[in-house]
Amino acid sequence: MKAFTQVISHVAPLDRPNVDTDAIIPKQYLKSIRRTGFGPFLFDDWRYLDPGTLEVDPATRRPNPEFVLNEPKHAGAQVLIARDNFGCGSSREHAVWALDDYGFRAVIAPSFADIFFSNCFKNGVLPVTLQAEEVQAIFEAVAADAAAKVTIDLPAQEVRLPDGRVFRFQINPHHKHNMVNGLDEIGLTLQQADAIRAYEAKRRAEAPWLFN
């Protein structure tokens, strides 16, 4: 996994609550059996005026000029900000792959849906949970100046605004450690293979029907 320490970037504002994973990456793209290449289809239904599939070259489609990510001033943003319950709905990790492939390294919101939140940490995309007022303050800062750069500092657990305001965020220490060091979680778990085998032996004696 890609390591995450610090990102300094302007911010793309998506002013909606309950942004669901169907909106982040619609179902027709889930037919891909690859892990990459989803960036052009991020927020597909909002982003384009005409429908798309895996077989349609996104370069031939008409971008929706009213969709915020299509505004030139937000191009190249590595941080996305949205309202409550970002990433709700389906467990599709393709949502995180699409955000990552598009170029987003972090998403800031007052709250995230659980499965999406967990998927982020497997892919080096940092979900940053801030208070609703703090999120509102960042929306206002972006509205005043789209070029305003925020710093997301994972080791310090801080989001710093250009005017000097600092918003602290909480994060599970395991998530932080794995993310800062870009660790492979499966490899880490397999270091505990003996403990897994010992658990299985004990459990098989207690509840053999679980191993039929």
Binding site: S91, E93, V96, S118, N119, E185, I186
Partner: peptide, 10 residues
């Protein structure tokens, strides 16, 4: 509970 693809692999 539902999981993402990385957790499917895990």
């Amino acid at each position: 509970f539902g999981i993402g693809t990385s957790e499917v692999e895990h």
